[in-house]
Amino acid sequence: MSAILKKFKRSKNANSIWRQPLAVVGISIIAIWTFLAIFAPWIAPYDPNAQDADKFLTPSAAHWMGTDELNRDIWSRIIYGARISLPYSLLLVVLSATLGSIIGAISGYAGGKVDAVIMRITDVFFAFPGIVLAMAVAAALGPQIRNAVIAITIVAWPIYARLVRGLILNAKQNDYVTASALLGSSALRTMVVDLRPNLSGPVFVLASLEVGNALLLLSGLSFLGLGAQPPAAEWGSMVSMGAVNFDRWWVGLFPGLAILTAVLAFNFIGDSLRDALDPRTAKALRD
């Protein structure tokens, strides 16, 4: 993965990611959120859980985004919320991409009945709306952020499995795979040595497009009370408090905007990465 990033930094050609305005916007937004998350204790004007103010204060110079039902400063909570939403969405993507890639690789390489069974299982997962399935799993495991992560991973892996299976099916037709077998490589070695380099690019692109989804699912579960538990400052659960107090517009609006900007930024980056990395598109631009 670091090799891929290095390649971007070196390439100054037309389809370099740094030439794409949307990518720059996305990267900037994520950089800001990351900065806020890391330096939250110094940036946040108040303790996110301190109940010092009055409840439902409208936005003002003292409380930029007002206060919530429990007298807490919303801007401070949003800054601390970035400490949950960003790392957990990245963790989710890493987990589901790893799990899905391994299952997909087995499916594609083994073929036959193994492949058929695994693909029917992914069909079942695709037949459910993701949030519904994640709710069911999270509810069954109990409301906890760790269980929400497990639930979302379970929902999210099939898309990677499908992608990797297709890539492997395609790549294993190549003569170089046969040549490698003729030289004495076992199937496992061929997968790791010969086929893995074909996967990292597309999987990385898909993963970057999925970070936004993961963040949405996580916020969604928290909104429903199945993710982060109070008093943790989590954007999804803050929106949920806003939904209860619908007439106090600032309670739900600002955390909602936080989710919006982060998801949008991740999608901008994913889209631009796809344009930059997709071998076909990239090749078409070069030739």
């Binding site: 046969t178 003729l182 030289l183 004495g184 076992s186």
Partner: peptide
């Protein structure tokens, strides 16, 4: 799927 026996690695394509 296993390793090709050493004897036959001398037969290449």
């Amino acid at each position: 799927r296993g390793k090709r026996p050493e004897h036959f690695r001398n037969l290449q394509m």
